[in-house]
Design a protein around this nucleic acid. Structure first.
Lengths: 358, 358
DNA sequence: CTGTTAGCGCATTCAT
DNA sequence: ATGAATGCGCTAACAG
C-alpha cells in the first residue's frame, strides 16, 4: 500500500542505498542519477518513513521546545523564535533534511515536564530547549537533573532559555538566564526614586526561580533604601502576595494587598499580565493610575505599550533569546563561556508610574 | 551503551516479547511477571525506543497541532486545550501509552504549513489538528487537500479547528468552524443600532478564510442597513484596509482609514489585537474612545476585558473548541453529523462602543 | 560514484 | 501465559 524507498529505487533503476543518499544529501551522487531519483520520488509521491530512518541512523530530526504556558505570549515569543531558527530554512517543498521543531506545553506541571522529556527521549530527540522559570522543589530538581543528564548522554543537545542552570547538570549545551534579579531591583529603585515608600508586591507562584529572583531584586532595592528592614521578614511578607502568572491572580492579590495596607502608593507585579489584573483591581477600587497609585510589570510583552496608561516594566529580549537558544540547539552558535550567559533586562519607564501624591 | 528491551528481558528473566507485552499493556501477562518486568525497567532506567516501536507497529504516538502564530493567545488557547485532552491523562511517571502532543508554528506561511504536514506524515503521526483560518490561494488549497487526503489514507486522523472544511477533502475526521460571518454581522449590527453610519473596517490579511468571513458579515450588516450599497464595491473598499493580525497593522490601518474618511464614528477591527492598535492610533490622533469614536474587536481574548475602555468584541469559545478538537483527534468524541460543526460566536458589548456624537 | 550486506529495536505472528 | 522467529523500512559500512 504505502510506497517505500525500495519502490523508488526500482522506479529509478538504482539501488535503495542510492536513493537514501540523494534523499539525505550527505554523499556524492551523480547529477543525472539524482535527477532520476528525485523524479521517481515525485512521481510516486514518496515520503520517507521517519521511524525507520531514525532507527537505522540512531538519530531523529525531532527537536522539542518545552514551555510552561502556551497561551502566554512570554513563551510564545521565545518558542516561535527558537522554532524559526530550527526549522525555518524554507523547505524545498519536498521537506529535505529539515528538523521538526515542536513545542510542548507543560502547563507548569512538574510531572508533565518530566513526562514530556521522557517522551522526547523515547523519540531520540536531536535537541531539547527548556524555556522559562524552573520549579525549585528539591525532588523535582534532582529528577530533572538526572533526566537531562541521561538525555545529553544519549546525544540530545539540551539548551535552557530564560532559565538558570540546573545544579549538577553540566551535560547541558548552554543556559541562557535572564537577569530577573537585576531587572527587579532596578524597577523598584525607579519607584523609590520617584518617592514611593509603601510598595506592595504581587509575586508569581512560589517555588519558581523566576518568582524568587524578581522578588529578591525587589527586596534588595527596598532594603537598600531602608524602607523595610532586611531582617523584618514579617513586614516583607505582609507586603507580598503570591499567585499564578495570570490576570485573575493579579486582580485578587492586589485587592488583598490593599486590604493589608490601604496606604500603598505603588504596586509591583510579577509580570505584565499580572500587572493588568492589578490595574483592573485598582480601578475598581476607584483609584487612578498613576495619579493615586503607580503600577509596574515585567517582561514588556507587546500589549504593555498599548494599555492605558502604558505600563512601566522591564524589557526582556524574548525573541532574541529564543532565537539564540534555537541556534545553540542546532549547534549553529558557539556556547557562551562556561555554557552560561546572563541576558540583561532593561527598565522601561512609561505612563503607569509617577511620583506619589503629596 | 543504551539499554534495550532485550536487556530488560534478560534482567527480568523473560523473553523480549513478554517485556513488550507488559509495556504495551494490551495483552494478558501474569501479575508476578509484570511486576518483575516493571522492576527491571525501573532498575535499568529503560526508555522505549520510539522509532523502533513505531517502525514495528507501523503507528506512532505523535500528534501534531498546527498553529499560524504561536505568540498569539488565540492559537495558544486552542492549542493548549487540545494538548491537554490529548496528552493530559497524568502519566504514571513511567510515561505509559501517552501520546506526544506537539504544536507546530507555521507563522502563517503556506509553505511551512505543507512542510510541517510532510514532516508529520513522515513521522506517521497518529493525528493532526489544524487550527485557525486557512489560506485561500487555489494552488495551496489543492496541495493541502491532496496532502490531507494522503495523511488520512495513511491512518492519520485529521481534525480542523476554527477552520472551515476543505473542499474535496472528505477524508477528514471533523471540521469545527467558527461562525465568523454571523459574529461579524452581529457586531456591526450593534454599531448600527447605536446610530453609527460611517464605519471603517480594519481587515486581516487577504486570502484568509477568517478575514473574508468576518468582513462578509460586516458588509452584510452594512448593506442591510443601507449604509453602503451592496453593489458599490469602490465605497466598500474605501472603508476597508487590510493588514496582518497584529497591533502594528491595526495602528497603521486605522491611520489610513482616518485619512480616507475623517468623519468616521466607528472602527471595527479584524481581531482584538488589531483593535488594540486601532485604539492607540485613535488616541494618538486626540480622539477619545468611545466618546469621539467607537472601536470593536473580535475573539474576546483575555486582555480584552482589561483594556480601558474594555473592548466590545465577539466571543469565540476557543478553549472549548480546542478541547473538542483534541478529543476528536483522539477518537474520544463522536464527530458531528457530516463531520462539520459550526461553533457559535457571541457578541460581547463593553465600554469601547457607544452612540456617536450628535 | 554505486550496489550488497547487515543490522537498528521492537511488535507480532505462530507455537507451546 | 510465555517463548521463538520474522520483518517493519531504512542507513551504514563495506566492496567494487
Amino acid at each position: 500500500m504505502t510506497v517505500t524507498l525500495a519502490d523508488v529505487a526500482a522506479r529509478a533503476r538504482v539501488s535503495p542505498a542510492t536513493v537514501s543518499r540523494v534523499l539525505n544529501g550527505n554523499y556524492p551522487v551523480a547529477a543525472s542519477t539524482r535527477e532520476r531519483v528525485l523524479r521517481a520520488v515525485d512521481e510516486l509521491d514518496y515520503v520517507l518513513n521517519g521511524p525507520a530512518s531514525s532507527l537505522a541512523a540512531a538519530t531523529s530530526d525531532l527537536v522539542g521546545i518545552l514551555v510552561n504556558d502556551i497561551a502566554d505570549p512570554f513563551f510564545g515569543i521565545m518558542a516561535g523564535a527558537a522554532q524559526t531558527e530550527i526549522g525555518g530554512q524554507e523547505g524545498t517543498g519536498r521537506a529535505g533534511g529539515e528538523k521538526l521543531a515542536v513545542v510542548c506545553n507543560t502547563g507548569g506541571s512538574p510531572e508533565r515536564e518530566l513526562t514530556y522529556l521522557t517522551l522526547l527521549q523515547r523519540q531520540r530527540a536531536a535537541a531539547v530547549v527548556l524555556t522559562g522559570g524552573a520549579i525549585e522543589d528539591p525532588a523535582h530538581i534532582a529528577a530533572m537533573s538526572a533526566k537531562l543528564t541521561r538525555l545529553a548522554d544519549a546525544g540530545t543537545r539540551v539548551v535552557l532559555c530564560g532559565r538558570p542552570p540546573l545544579p549538577g547538570s553540566d551535560a547541558i549545551v548552554a543556559a541562557l538566564a535572564f537577569d530577573n534579579r537585576g531587572g527587579g531591583r532596578r524597577l523598584t529603585e525607579h519607584l523609590i526614586a520617584l518617592g514611593h515608600r509603601r510598595i506592595g508586591y504581587v509575586a508569581g507562584p512560589v517555588e519558581r526561580t523566576t518568582t524568587r529572583h524578581r522578588l529578591e531584586g525587589h527586596r534588595a532595592a527596598v532594603a537598600a533604601a531602608g524602607l523595610v528592614d532586611e531582617k523584618d521578614v514579617a513586614e516583607q511578607e505582609r507586603l507580598t502576595v503570591h499567585g499564578s502568572y495570570d490576570r485573575r491572580s493579579g486582580y485578587d492579590a492586589t485587592l488583598e494587598l490593599l486590604r493589608r495596607e490601604p496606604s500603598l502608593t505603588a504596586v509591583v507585579a510579577a509580570n505584565d499580565t499580572v500587572a493588568l489584573g492589578a490595574c483592573a483591581a485598582l480601578r475598581d477600587q476607584g483609584l487612578r493610575i498613576p495619579e493615586d497609585i503607580s503600577v509596574a510589570g515585567f517582561d514588556d510583552l507587546p500589549f504593555s505599550i498599548d494599555v492605558v496608561p502604558s505600563l512601566t516594566t522591564v524589557r526582556l529580549p524574548l525573541f532574541e533569546a529564543g532565537a539564540r537558544a534555537g541556534r545553540l540547539a542546532m549547534g549553529n552558535e558557539t556556547p557562551p563561556p562556561g555554557g552560561i550567559a546572563t541576558i540583561p533586562a532593561e527598565l522601561m519607564v512609561r505612563g503607569s508610574t509617577a511620583p506619589p501624591r503629596a
